[in-house]
Nucleic acid binder design. Structure first.
Length: 873
RNA sequence: GCGGGCGUGGCGAAACUGGUAGACGCAAGGGACUUAAAAUCCCUCGACCUUGGUCAUGCGGGUUCGAUCCCCGCCGCCCGCACCA
């Protein structure tokens, strides 16, 4: 018999060739079987792939292969999120072109991905930087424009005053530009926005329909959208303290009930009133300039020291005539949220309290926690934001918080300021419209022409795409499109006068907000063919990193709605099922000089120390971290493919760690996978050897054969369940457990004198076939090899999922743990159909129970069906 | 700062989300086979007490016949925060 080792270096490329030659992963849109769309978030072509990228794709591949076996017409495509900042950085650093760099990376990474043996339909491959792709995106932009979903407004960017360029948030390090080191400031720019807030309510409420999304992601989106019900309220300003023309400030609050606890008003540094006041007030102007220092990110703004500036303006309390509150400009108030102005109630808001303490403002509690004495209750360093009853609040005294909110809203709705109600109930969202303008070259051009007489005019669809010019240089900072000698100069499509193109390009999140719909059309179809999109969407299983939980997924949900609103598609939600996988981490290594080393440069000693391979030079081993090029803790797929084979890598990636958690890549782990692969290969060969040529199917099975069959059928049923729930680590554990039992059966069969009875031979072969079917989605190459040995028909990649016989899954006996007062004292094995009375009787007869009872009589016996018995004394 | 998550043996974890805590794997130790090694196979493997117990799921409380799971309060680590993708 062939007891050679399984050789992945021979088998893996061979099977990959067979799959490719037969085109079995190329999906037809007109296939009558039920559809299943599985998609992993497409990669940014950053250079080279490492095994850490692979986990995502391998998990998707298991799903794709499993669903194929289950009889679905599976769509499993791949593409490239190819626009973005790193290509421009590479262009600057190595004086190459972003396009050249990007396509070189795509070529490399595609070859690497192919090594993994993924069942991808490469015929639908896309790259977002392909004009064929972004042409459609520009059409979508024009559709959105026509539908009123695009508009222009001013918003702030990170400005590097030395390089005179806009910086991304990640390019701002500790408030300074990453190249120039200059202090970054916020600067206003006119930019394009998608009106995502038009769908805020729906994006929120539809989260309830996404029952195959992780709760945590839905919660994050809910909080991000941040619907709140509150009151918008206008404060009259003391005319003697304000410049002409400003007589009021409008604020938004979700806590109007605390209005009697107000001690100040605060407005954003870029609030129109602040800017107007600054014209007359040099000190304030200086303060505002100070506020503008630093980046635009919420993180930067909210972690900086809270500062305020008393403008001298006084605002009259709407409920207490003659009570004036000071108006501050504060660096933590965001112009983008609400009205860019708040009233501060220090007793019941921590940020307001910190501010009040800093500037010596009064702190007056108006909500009394239950059980506190109104005479003595005070607030120290911690604001009270809990439940309670209103006090110190005139007509609201004694009311609950919700009742007080209602009462004060009613009062202010009926109170006039100017000719309008002073207060208005208002639903507010934290979600802001999506700014898509980027002052960069390597992105999709925004198809707009700015005409001096017509204003911004969308480029007519027949003139699309607006192509990126390729003759650009990156020898100085700024956007090459803007300084290109000819590209932007065009005639206005409306009136023909000399006009200029928009030189901003789109946020790369736009590219990834519809790519999943692009895959629905095969290569020769139009890029967003409605029929195809409506057929394939939603994606049945989407897999990607948790870092995309909010932005990418929310933008994609918006796009689906906006495209539907434009009549381009009819889809409610883009992703019916979502799974967020963890990263692969690896130890890091540094040599004596502190330089990072690749894992293959390091030799680990049995005493736990490590040295540089082939030397005595000590190496410092660091804790496992996310695989990254910069720290060199990466394992390239080629290295694995050339040694253990990619099946072992796939098996290892699926083993042990739950897929949503980070998983550590270790040499020992991959060795374990190798041993297991060899073990399967040996067992399958041995089973074929023992059972001989395909035996006649027996009609009855003896106890040995039945035991083998029970285990196999149970394996099939359990693993199918595990795959459906994406619990790959549990599936792997089940396969291990099964193989342990199967090996025992093979050993027993071998030890048996004489020929193997036909029923056992048949059971062994069935057990092997089922095993191979079950592992096929996970380690497809080895499975094909085993399938051949077992005489399976065709390819296992195209074989149906094995069918588990329900009759073999039921147990006729059960073993119940027996507890006394919640501690396990004994076990009871009894017929699975035993009644509670039978169980009770049998339990009391147990030795362990009698011993534990020590003559006492049980007070109560809790019987949980098929689970446990607890005797309470 | 705000929002979200995670925490179980030496290590990765499992436990059908209220019912035997530690399945399965890795590492380690012992043994068999071998001239030897590799490979393979068998056994041991949370801690503490000499059977049987006691203690153990980050820490401290609570609810329950029973808590890794639910509630309250801490500690530590990770992710996101709108121009990284």
């Amino acid at each position: 018999m062939t007891q050679e080792r399984y050789n992945p270096r021979d088998a893996e490329p061979r099977w990959q060739r067979v799959w490719a030659e037969r085109g079995i992963f190329e999906t037809k849109n007109d296939d009558p079987r039920p559809k299943y769309y599985v998609l992993e978030m497409f990669p940014y072509p950053s250079g080279r792939i490492h095994i850490g990228h692979g986990r995502n794709y391998v998990m998707g591949d298991v799903v794709a292969r499993f669903k194929r076996m289950k009889g679905f017409n599976v769509l499993h495509p791949m593409g490239w999120d190819a626009f973005g900042l790193p290509a421009e950085n590479a262009a600057i650093e190595r004086n190459s072109h972003p396009k050249v760099w990007t396509y070189e990376n795509i070529e490399t990474m595609k070859a690497q991905l192919k090594l993994l043996g993924l069942s991808l339909d490469w015929s639908r491959e896309i790259a977002t930087c392909d004009p064929a792709y972004y042409a459609e995106q520009q059409k979508i932009f024009v559709d959105f424009f026509d539908k009123g979903l695009v508009y222009r407004k001013e918003s702030e960017v990170n400005w590097d005053p030395v390089d005179n360029t806009v910086l991304a948030n990640e390019q701002v390090i500790d408030g300074r530009g990453w190249r120039s080191g200059a202090l970054v400031e916020r600067r206003k720019l006119s930019q394009w926005f998608f009106r995502i807030t038009a769908f805020a309510e729906e994006l929120l409420s539809a989260l309830d329909t996404l029952d195959r999304w992780p709760d945590k992601v839905r919660l994050m989106q809910r909080n991000w959208i941040g619907r709140s019900e509150g009151l918008s309220l206008r404060f009259q300003l003391d005319a003697s303290t304000t410049p002409l023309g400003t007589s009021e400030i409008e604020i938004y609050t979700t806590r109007p009930d605390t209005l009697y606890g107000a001690s100040f008003l605060a407005i954003a540094a870029n609030h129109p009133l602040a800017e107007k006041l600054a014209e007359e007030n040099a000190e304030l102007a200086e303060f505002i300039a100070e506020c503008r220092r630093g980046g635009t990110s919420a993180e930067a703004i909210e972690t900086q020291e809270k500062l305020g500036f008393d403008t001298g303006v006084k605002a009259e309390h709407p409920l207490v005539p003659g009570w004036f509150l000071p108006v501050y400009v504060a660096n933590f108030i965001l112009m983008d949220y609400g009205t860019g102005a708040i009233f501060g109630c220090p007793a019941h808001d921590q940020r307001d309290l910190d501010f009040a303490r800093k500037y010596g403002l009064p702190v007056k509690p108006v909500v009394l926690p239950e059980g506190e004495d109104p005479a003595s209750f005070g607030v120290g360093d911690i604001a009270y934001d809990g439940d309670g009853t209103l006090f110190n609040s005139a007509f609201m005294d004694g009311l609950s918080i919700p009742d007080a909110k209602d009462a004060v809203a009613k009062r202010l709705e009926n109170q006039s300021l100017g000719n309008a109600p002073q207060g208005k109930r208002q639903v507010n969202f934290r979600l802001r419209d999506w700014g898509i303008s980027r002052q960069r070259y390597w992105g999709c051009p925004i198809p707009v022409i700015h005409c001096p007489s017509c204003g911004p005019v969308p480029v007519p669809k027949e003139d699309l795409p607006v192509r990126l010019p390729e003759d650009v240089t990156f020898d100085r900072p700024g956007n090459p499109l803007d300084r290109h000698p000819t590209w932007k100069h065009v005639a206005c499509p409306k009136c023909g006068t000399a006009a200029v193109r928009e030189t901003d390009t789109m946020d790369t999140f736009v590219d990834s907000s519809w790519y999943f719909a692009r895959f629905a059309s095969s290569a020769h179809m139009s890029p967003l063919a409605k029929e195809a999109v409506d057929h394939w969407l939603p994606v049945d299983q989407y897999i990607g990193g948790i870092e995309h939980a909010i932005l990418h997924l929310l933008y994609s949900r918006f796009f689906t709605r906006a495209l539907t609103a434009c009549g381009r598609i009819s889809v409610a939600e883009p992703f019916a099922g979502l799974f967020t996988q963890g990263m692969i981490v690896h130890e890091t290594y540094k040599d004596a000089a502190g330089k990072w080393l690749f894992p293959e440069e390091v030799e680990k000693r049995s005493d736990g120390t490590a040295v540089r391979k082939g030397t005595e030079e000590p190496v410092t081993v660091g804790p496992p971290e996310k695989m990254s090029k910069s720290k060199k803790n990466v394992v390239p797929p080629e290295v694995v493919a050339d040694s253990y084979g990619v099946d072992c890598a796939r098996w290892f990636m699926l083993s042990d760690t739950p897929p949503e958690r980070d998983s550590e890549w270790t040499e020992a782990g991959i060795e374990g996978a190798w041993r297991f692969a060899q073990r399967i290969w040996r067992l399958v060969n041995e089973a074929v050897d023992l059972a001989g040529p395909t035996p006649v199917a027996p009609t009855t099975f003896g106890p040995e054969a039945t035991a083998i069959r029970r285990a196999a059928h149970r394996l099939v049923a359990h693993v199918a369940e595990d795959f459906d729930r994406l619990r790959f680590n549990v599936a792997v554990a089940r396969v291990h457990a099964y193989v342990n039992g199967y090996a025992d059966a093979v050993n027993a069969a071998r030890a048996r004198a004489g020929a193997l009875p036909a029923d056992e031979a048949a059971a062994l072969l069935e057990g092997a076939r089922m095993l191979v079917g079950v592992i096929a989605p996970m380690i497809p190459h080895l499975a094909e090899e085993c399938w051949t040995v077992l005489g399976g028909e065709g390819l296992v990649a195209e074989a149906p999922w094995p069918v588990a016989d329900a009759a073999l899954l039921v147990e006729d006996e059960m073993t119940l743990p027996v507890q006394i007062n919640g501690k396990k004292r004994d076990e009871l094995t009894i017929s699975a159909t035993a009644s509670d009375a039978d169980i009770e009787k049998a339990v009391l007869a147990l030795d362990g129970v009698a011993r534990a009872l020590e003559g006492r009589s049980p007070r109560k016996i809790v019987i949980v069906p098929k689970r446990i018995v607890n005797v309470v004394v």
